[in-house]
Amino acid sequence: MNIFRLTGDLSHLAAIVILLLKIWKTRSCAGISGKSQLLFALVFTTRYLDLFTSFISLYNTSMKLIYIACSYATVYLIYMKFKATYDGNHDTFRVEFLVVPVGGLSFLVNHDFSPLEILWTFSIYLESVAILPQLFMISKTGEAETITTHYLFFQGLYRALYLVNWIWRFYFEGFFDLIAVVAGVVQTILYCDFFYLYITKGMSGCALPA
C-alpha cells in the first residue's frame, strides 16, 4: 500500500459517496445516468466475487463491501425511490454496445481462463468504459450540475492516482498487471477532456464537448 493507492481508493470512495449524498439530499437523480450506475454495480459485483474465495486484509474486505453496498444503494435510489426524477429520456446510451464487446474481450484476453478470472477481467474492462453513458448524457443535455462534475472529477482522479500507484509498484515491488494498466489508461483518458474543463471553468457546472 502506497500513498497513491490509498488516495486513489479514497477518491473513489469520495466519488461514490458524493453521488449518493447528492441524490439523497436533493431527493432527485436528475442529470445522473442510471445506466452508468448499473454498469458500476455490475463492475463491483463481478470483480469482488473473490470476497468468497480469498481474504487479503480487513481494509480490502471492508472497502469492497462499502463499494458494493453504495453502488447498489445508488441504483436503488435512481430506479426505485426517486424514479420519478430519473431523466431516462436523456439516458439513451446503448449499453449492449459496451457489455457485449467487453464480455467477448474478457474471454479472449485474460490472465487465466477460469470463471472468476474471466469475471474479474470483465469488470476491469467494463469499468474503463462504464462512465460513457454518463458523459454521453451530459453531452446531450449540454450541462452538468456542479456536484455531478465533482463526482466525475473524483472518479477520474481515482484512476489517475492508480496509474501513479502502478508506476510506483512497478519500480519498487516489481508488480505489473498489463490488463489493469491498459484498462486504467483507457479509463483515465476518457476523463481528460473533462479534467481540462473542470479546472479551466473554475470547478463549477460546465458544458462538456460532444
Binding site: R5, D9, H12, D50, T53, S54, I56, S57, N60, M63, K64, Y67, H111, D112, S114, L116, E117, W120, Y162, F175, F176, D177, A180
Partner: peptide, 10 residues
C-alpha cells in the same frame, strides 16, 4: 506475472 488469487487492489 500476476497471481490470480492474490489481487490486493480494488
Amino acid at each position: 506475472e500476476v497471481r490470480v488469487d492474490e489481487k490486493d487492489e480494488l
